[in-house]
Design a protein around this nucleic acid. Structure first.
Length: 589
RNA sequence: CUCCUCGUAGCUCAGUUGGAUUAGAGCAACUGCCUUCUAAGCAGUGGGUCGCAGGUUCGAGUCCUGCCGAGGAGGCCA
């Protein structure tokens, strides 16, 4: 409908151009929906925008435009109001068009295909938590956000890949391996002390037990090494001492250290993947940091390839024995180390190579979902991409704020350090996966979120998810009742009876339905999934109100069929919206 | 100290990319509505100097600057 109005305005703009001889090609025609029904269904501020360019009174321009606007059949009336707004009043038949559209497009309504441009190939990287422990509630919000955003971007006609970047390299993973091994040795009573800066969770002990079950005594040690290790062990160790212990362990175990490492990593990753699956989150690609260090088919490993090309562009220099990247030349606050004095590359170096690889894979958009605590990290990654002559406009990062869990009106405190965290799987078990998804996404991502556990479990109108799902169930139930009454729904009669739908609420519902495609597009363009939640809440509310006000199963056949047609469109749109959010639309509740 | 995100009703938050007498929801508070298609719901009432001060223009909750306040970030950690 908006399109039709815009087309009509474009035509009248052309003739205006002839009169004034001014270039109007840059003018953007905006057609807006009105909230106040006294002002009509739609309006445009075109005359106001033009007034400066033409140095003419807006009202006069509006009149000229209006004169040029042929009275289209879908328009009932056109007014000029206020300082120069042009208001359009739609005819009754054009309003009900939307119902036919929904009825025709069904599951596809609100989903668009891109015509003018080729669809974008988009990579979304999200979650990417370190594989050193199970996912906790802190990861939940980013997980749902990424998964719903992917779904929204697909709904608007793009091809989307969802990727998890696995940091299976570096110190944290070595501490993990060490932690598992030490717990394992404790099973054999070879040591009896566990350092505080090793990983504390009970899952480490479980991994150690599994290790013992699968490998028996394979990783136990001689008395001599036992003494060496015990001597180094302290409850409170310096970080350096811990590194010493890691090298000592590597020496004692040789290749077996890597065996423990990959055992622990695989178990934890499997666990993470399972938790995500239970949460309705599925990545189709798992990119391991370690793959960038492999020299496949005599090719230079990706990490060195990236560093070499920075080197070739003279963006690296040596200082204090380390290798630095001139990120300040590209707007970063200070230069960053890519290779340490000890020869090891940094995490940042991996990230440079990883992001360069994303570009190499030919994506037209590269989106990262990061926790808000990483925001200081963005300038250096951007700097690196600029230095490599990549188009940084393709690269976008969405920062997600942390969520507080609220129970009995009080914040739950969490400390990762002491292993006191609520795991994601515990949360899902408590409130169900769907409620968790909805509550995480029901807020702008860059906003702090209070997640009220009690509310998420509540089955009443206060819980927006139940309220929305209930609208769907209610409509289904009306159709069930219809059959019980030995009546049936006949679309052909309905389509001929749409003139029955002209109460205020019926018009309001049709307006809302026609907004759905725009809401999806807007939430895709701005990366704002919460808009869909708010939209559905709104639609459900309008329906519940209508339901209470007007009996649907009435005697008069034309009215009955028309109302059924209307609510079945509502049901379809609620269903489509929930589908995008990855949430089910139950038939009964 | 520098940089990010933010500040809207008692609480939790929206606000269609700068639009129209009257800035919207939901909680919470008060008042009504079940012999009826699900009351798991609906209708109504009260509640605001959009943090403060300037600026940009026909027009600002929305854009710019400066203050005030909240949270976060600034490692040869990942």
């Amino acid at each position: 409908m908006k399109e039709l109005l815009r087309d009509a305005l474009t035509d009248s703009l052309k003739s205006l151009k002839e009169q004034y001889d001014v270039d109007l090609s840059t003018i953007k025609i905006e057609v807006k929906e009105n909230k106040e029904k006294d002002f009509g269904d739609f309006s445009t501020n075109l005359a106001l925008v033009l007034s400066k360019k033409l140095s003419e009174q807006p009202k006069k321009i509006a009149e000229i435009l209006l004169g040029e606007l042929d009275k289209k059949e879908f328009i009932d009336r056109i007014d000029i109001a206020g300082p120069g707004f042009i208001n359009f009043f739609l005819s009754q038949t054009s309003r009900t068009e939307i119902l036919k559209t929904v009825n025709k497009e069904k599951n596809k309504f609100g989903f668009s295909q891109k015509k003018e441009f080729e669809s974008d190939k988009i990579l979304i990287e999200y979650v990417s938590s370190n594989p050193t422990g199970p996912l906790h509630v802190g990861h939940g919000r980013g997980a749902v956000f990424g998964s719903v955003l992917s779904s929204i971007l697909r709904a608007t006609g793009n091809q989307v890949d969802e990727e998890y970047y696995v940091n299976d390299q570096g110190r944290q993973v070595e501490i993990l391996s060490l932690s598992v091994w030490l717990r394992y040795l404790m099973i054999f009573n070879q040591i009896n002390l566990f350092p505080n800066n090793c990983y504390q969770g009970t899952y480490i002990e479980e991994l150690a037990e599994e290790l013992e079950r699968d490998y028996g005594e394979k990783f136990s040690i001689t008395k001599e090494i036992e003494n060496q290790i015990s001597q180094m062990l302290q409850l409170d160790m310096e970080e350096e001492a811990l590194d010493g212990l890691i090298s000592q362990s590597k020496e004692a175990l040789n290749e077996s250290f890597d065996e423990i490492k990959s055992f622990a990593l695989n178990r934890i990753l499997k666990n993470i993947e399972g938790d995500l699956k239970d949460f309705g989150v599925k990545h189709n690609s798992w990119f391991k940091e370690s793959t960038m260090f492999r020299a496949d088919k005599d090719k230079t490993p990706l990490i060195y390839k990236a560093l070499d090309s920075l080197q070739a562009k003279k963006q690296l220099y040596e200082k204090d024995g380390a290798l630095w990247f001139r990120s300040t030349d590209f707007g970063d606050e200070k230069d960053r180390v890519v290779k340490r004095e000890n020869g090891a590359t940094t995490y940042f170096a991996s990230d440079i190579a990883y992001h360069a690889n994303k570009y190499d894979r030919g994506y037209s958009k590269i989106i990262n979902i990061w926790g808000a605590d990483h925001h200081g990290y963005l300038p250096r990654v951007k700097a690196a991409m600029s230095a490599l002559d990549e188009d940084t406009d393709k690269f976008e990062v969405v920062f997600i704020q942390f969520a507080n869990l609220i129970r009995n009106g009080k914040k739950l405190s969490m400390s990762t350090r002491a292993g006191e965290f609520i795991s994601l799987s515990e949360l899902i078990e408590e409130v169900t996966s769907e409620a968790a998804r909805f509550f995480y996404i029901n807020r702008k991502g860059n906003q702090h979120l209070d997640f009220d556990l009690d509310l998420a479990k509540e089955q009443s109108k206060d819980n927006p998810l139940y309220y929305i799902q209930y609208a769907h169930a209610r409509i289904c139930s009306v159709f069930d009742k219809l059959e019980e009454n030995k009546k049936s729904y006949k679309e052909s009669i309905a389509i001929d009876s749409l003139d029955q739908l002209n109460s205020e609420q019926e018009i309001e519902i049709q307006k809302l339905l026609s907004q759905f495609p725009e809401v999806v597009i807007r939430s895709a363009a701005n990366y704002e999934p919460h808009l869909i939640c708010y939209y559905l809440r709104n639609l459900a509310g309008t329906f519940h109100s209508y339901y209470n006000n007007e009996k649907i199963l009435v005697e008069k056949e034309s009215t009955l069929q028309a109302r059924l047609f209307l609510i079945s469109a509502v049901r379809q749109v609620v269903f489509n919206g929930l589908t995008i959010l990855g949430i089910s639309a139950p038939k009964t509740m």
